[in-house]
Design a protein around this nucleic acid. Structure first.
Lengths: 341, 341
DNA sequence: CCTTGAACCGCAACCGGTTGCATTTTTGGG
DNA sequence: CCCAAAAATGCAACCGGTTGCGGTTCAAGG
């Protein structure tokens, strides 16, 4: 059906090798035959088959992208950028949807069948086991949004969640909130654990009491709303640190439904700075992680690893920043951000 | 690196063909050799290479998924379901991100290189040219969310946008709104054109004046907000039909910022029924298209086409429904929905 | 014009599977 | 127990490329 090397070779009156070489750069072909081949190829509409090529070269130019959270709006950015960046570098993404799966075997199998050149595991809710499984199968892998863990030999690109938790506690304190609740994402996610740990650590230093720690079942409006409904009137706190903007927005609606005024009765701090956080009805103060930079860096790293699989495990951490909006009390004008008042 | 057929064959003491046959179903192998092969394969951790297989069978089990709107939340559902459904049927999705591209050549090239078995073009903002290009290259293709057009020979799965436009006008009328504006999605999208046309047609029948038609640049909150800001006080209308929930939510915020009360001063009707439409702060009445069914159907169709490429062009249309919330005036209790009062 | 080295080219083997065909083995009926 | 048909097996060619190697062509220098 499709035009092959052989047909082009015949039409151009050269050997198959010659055709192959004009299509692989760095190979030695004279200007004359190159021209002959190219015009023959054009005439026939020839395009080399990457499948066949990869059989010979052992390179598929395919990068596996495994994710398990297809419902979270931040993943729009993730998919958009991953595909674009890979495309720009001559790679193509092969998606694996791991929603509701817990063991690495299946995804490993799926991707090995296609001999992907590398894998990006993009999630904060999967254990390092996944990345490790790929590594042990000799497939280069980077764990994006993963827990950085100097005991595992995996490449990690993401943020310091512990640090973000600290930042949240400090921010509450600076803004004059005096007791806090945490409404984390799924309890098993490493990102949740680290943020909560960081929050607690800094809160202790600041003498900021933490009245409640709850976990939402997943990153969703409904989960946040429900969890918050269960928190109201159950404790004594004037600010909530949420695991995610969606959860936070749900929580805000629960608070409002209970007649609470934001931020005077209760403050909210989200995470991720999704577009919705900026919507007028919520105007959510939130912590932003530089998703786009993280992804660009991940793609850069995985492609580098494909060419040089033996690089030693690298951890790339990006800074998070507070996006000031209106769901926390405003800074007293004579205090300094970051310094206890 | 990876274990090959040959090694398994040697260890099992059989021919390569025997091994191949135990891994292709429907082939004739005795129970005895099958057992030998299977245990050898297990011992070595063998997995057939789909790349090599596809070279011989001319089937890659890869389906291209081309999309150009990675910023729209409905695409979370799209990606989630496409990947899952394909996975379940033994196919794998190869993504192409067409954001900012307008001609089909590049995506065709990208996917032909990998000899995908079929392609799903999932967008309402690309012309039929794309689907046609694939068809002419003899690659089975279904255009999901595409314009149904009986003059083109493409397979289409989606909705009747004209009908949806009519439904919107009828709904406005039924709810007692007496003059309307349209705030469509991108003007060039076929879906926009059809909905506007349907809306106008039905409005004419009902004698519902349409005071304004505007188009947002893209499906986003900001675009909706800006467009709406430009509409306020410029005309005389008491309800707005938006091209998308995001646009609509942006428009609502613009209206509220101008001091208008929803739905008494102005009503809003969205499109898509995204999760955010249900958020308490917006509680948006909207038209839902059965995205999940559309996608399931698309996957089913494309896989059927792979096995039988000569099926004649099929158009599969799904019904849309109004999701009642609170952004339109409520139905007078003695009138009947769908019937002019 | 001859020599020499570099650039170019084609042959043939190979990547890891599949499959038609001929051959061998098995099965079952008489 | 024999024989024919059916089932299982192996051989070898093929899918569409790449690439090491040896031979040929070419340009430059003597």
């Amino acid at each position: 059906m499709a035009v092959t090397l052989k047909e082009v070779a015949e039409r151009a009156g050269v050997s198959r090798s010659a055709v192959s070489r004009t299509f692989t750069d760095g190979a030695s072909v004279s200007a004359k035959t190159r021209k002959k081949v190219e015009s023959a190829a054009k005439a026939l509409g020839y395009q080399p088959s990457l499948i066949a090529r990869s059989l010979a070269t052992n390179r598929t130019k395919l990068i596996g992208l495994v994710a398990n959270n297809y419902q979270n709006p931040v993943f729009l950015d993730v998919f958009d950028l991953f595909t674009k960046e890979l495309q720009n570098r001559g790679y193509r993404p092969l998606l694996v949807n791991l929603t509701d799966e817990t063991n690495p075997e299946r995804s490993l199998g799926l991707l090995r069948q296609y001999s992907v050149d590398g894998v990006i595991v993009a999630t904060s809710t999967l254990p390092p086991t996944f990345a490790t499984a790929f590594r042990e199968a000799n497939i280069p892998v980077v764990h994006t949004f993963g827990k950085f863990d100097t005991t595992e030999d995996n490449h990690i690109v993401g943020i310091d969640n512990f640090r973000c938790g600290e930042m949240a506690a400090q921010t509450f304190f600076d803004r004059g909130h005096r007791s806090a609740a945490v409404l984390g994402g799924p309890e098993t996610a490493t990102s949740t654990k680290d943020r909560v740990a960081g929050f607690k650590a800094r809160a202790k230093v600041l003498n900021l009491p933490i009245d409640m720690v709850r976990y939402a079942d997943n990153y969703s409006y409904d989960a946040g709303r429900k969890a918050m409904a269960g928190l109201i009137n159950k404790g004594n706190f004037d600010a909530v640190f949420c695991g995610d903007d969606l959860i936070c927005i749900g929580a805000m609606d629960a608070a409002r439904a209970a007649g609470l005024v934001i931020p005077d009765d209760i403050g909210f701090l989200g995470f991720n700075n999704m577009p919705m956080a900026g919507w007028a009805a919520y105007d959510l103060t939130t912590i932003e992680q530089p998703t786009r930079d993280i992804i660009r860096s991940s793609v850069e790293l995985i492609t580098a690893l494909v060419d040089n699989p033996d690089r030693s495990a690298e951890i790339r951490l990006f800074p998070c920043t507070i996006i000031e909006r209106s769901t926390l009390k405003s800074l007293p004008f004579n205090s300094v951000a970051g310094e206890p008042v």
